[in-house]
Structure formats: structure tokens, C-alpha cells
Design a protein around this nucleic acid. Structure first.
Lengths: 79, 79
DNA sequence: GTGTAGACTGAAGTCGACC
DNA sequence: CGGTCGACTTCAGTCTACA
């Protein structure tokens, strides 16, 4: 699957695990709520800085975040 | 240290390990050579896609790349 | 082989509003 | 709570050229 889609899935997965809303994640990270929405639906490719910030507030390491994205990209889920 | 600086150091480190020039890395990744130069000196914050592409051609996993960046950022080397 | 400069295009990220 | 729209600003990434 595509990189942006994988990034979106990983964010949404960990956000729901943490049981917080997009509003709350936006507040924590300092990013706009509409931007979080765009990311989760794979409509934006974030910068490395964005990944570090979001991963931090989702309580996972940036490397683990990227690794999960990598596995999704490598897999052929949904094509 | 700052994120951009860490990214630059990790790219340069692995590029020299691979014994290739900025020209060659630019050719392999499809990015502009001046952009590679900007990245290595910490003057740009790349997107996740850029990291995946560069890490691939430096023969390391994106997660390992990010982990090395993370360690540099966490350390207080050069400030 | 690398740093840098400037001018450019497209995409990241903001903000307010509405469904 | 989350999706979306439009208009906006900032910055990633291109390209040419020269030290």
C-alpha cells in the first residue's frame, strides 16, 4: 500500500489505542485538527518533524512508528 | 541537537560508509544534488517519503535511520 | 566533489466554517 | 467527533550557475 495511507493507519491505530480524539491529539501536538484528519486519511505526507511530534504524544518511539509504516507499505494489504 | 542536524549527520555518515558522492546519491534517489547538500547540512526537514527513499539507497531500513536520528536528538552532542 | 545563491513550483500545514 | 471546503502562508524540493 501507499506510504501516506500507511502513515494514516498507524496514527489512527495508536490514537484509538490511547483513547483520545483528533481534537485532543491536535491540542497535544500543536497541529491543526483538520490536518490530523488529512493525515489519517492519507491525504498528506508529513515531514520527519511531524512524525517525531505525533509519535511522542502517541507514546511510541519514532522508530517503532516508522517500522509499522514500513511493514504496511511492504505488505500488499489493499493492493 | 536539532532534528534537521541529526538527519543530516545520519545521511552523510551512511553515504560515506557506502562510499558514494552526493551526485551519485542524488542520481539513485532521483532528488536534486543541491537538495542532498541542503539536507546533509541540516537546512531542510525532509518528508517521510524522502526518508524512505534515501534510507533505501543507503542500504538501511527506514526504522534504523530514524532510530539513529532519534539517538542524536536525545543526546546533547553539540549543545 | 561540495557549498551556496536565487528564483521558482508544488505540497505541507493553518484557520474558520459548516455538515 | 470526524469529514470537508476554500483561501491562505510557509517550506520542501527543482534547476541553473558559479566559486
Amino acid at each position: 500500500m501507499k506510504l501516506e495511507q500507511a502513515v494514516g493507519l498507524v496514527i489512527r491505530k495508536h490514537r484509538t489505542v490511547e483513547k483520545i480524539s483528533q481534537f485532543k491529539l491536535a491540542e497535544l501536538t500543536g497541529y491543526d485538527r483538520s490536518f490530523i484528519s488529512l493525515l489519517e486519511r492519507g491525504h498528506r505526507v508529513p515531514t520527519v518533524k511531524t512524525i517525531f511530534t505525533i509519535a511522542y504524544h502517541l507514546n511510541i518511539s519514532p522508530a517503532q512508528f516508522i517500522d509499522e509504516v514500513h511493514q504496511l507499505v511492504e505488505s500488499d494489504i489493499m493492493e
